[in-house]
């Protein structure tokens, strides 16, 4: 009873914090504050991974999303001209489209996950060792792995080419 209550309340606490900061990150008026709210939200996702015993995923989430991607986002914000001008109003002209996309994505996920039934006797959260992940990545999933690397490289070269023109 107590441990069920404890674990459920921990989960809901993380979820509520995550949702609050997700909403804040799209509604706050200040771009920099939005980025900070997004960081808290991403850390919340990492905590959910820890809650599900996926420590590796949680650490990679922090390393890549908070350490790398959000740092780049903040860099982009700070390089914006007139960042200190307090009169700039943030407006969002794509509210309708983003609402449609977000809600259809959420509907799709709810549809799939509600139909998903774990097979009896197969643990969904089998403890994955790092060695297993590495082996799978370099044997079974080597093609998607390499494809993603090439896409990232292309994005890197592309952004360098675009910024050089100016």
């Amino acid at each position: 009873m107590w441990s069920n209550f404890l674990s459920a309340s921990i989960f809901y606490l993380i979820a509520i914090v995550g949702i609050i900061f997700a909403i804040l990150s799209v509604t706050l008026k200040n771009m920099f504050h939005s980025a900070l709210a997004l960081i808290v939200m991403l850390l919340g996702v990492a905590v959910v991974y820890i809650y599900l015993d996926a420590e590796f995923l949680a650490l990679v989430q922090i390393l890549i999303y908070v350490g790398a991607i959000m740092t780049l986002v903040i860099f982009a914000i700070m390089l914006t001209a007139e960042i200190y001008n307090k009169n700039i109003k943030r407006h969002n002209q794509q509210k309708l489209i983003s609402l449609i996309i977000a809600s259809s994505m959420a509907g799709f996920l709810i549809f799939v996950l509600s139909r998903f039934k774990a097979q009896a006797g197969v643990s969904f959260f089998e403890p994955l060792t790092l060695a297993m992940i590495g082996k799978e990545l370099l044997t079974k999933y080597v093609l998607p792995f390499e494809l993603i690397s090439i896409i990232l490289l292309a994005a890197l070269v592309g952004s360098a080419a675009i910024s050089k023109k100016e």
Partner: peptide, 28 residues
């Protein structure tokens, strides 16, 4: 004694940059 100790160290210490950003930007 984490199994993933080294990865943990690099993950959490990558948060330090955020503090530097906040200080620099917040000072105005």
């Amino acid at each position: 004694d984490f199994g993933l100790g080294l990865l943990y160290i690099f993950a959490v210490s990558s948060l330090g940059v955020i503090g530097v950003f906040m200080a620099g930007w917040g000072s105005g």
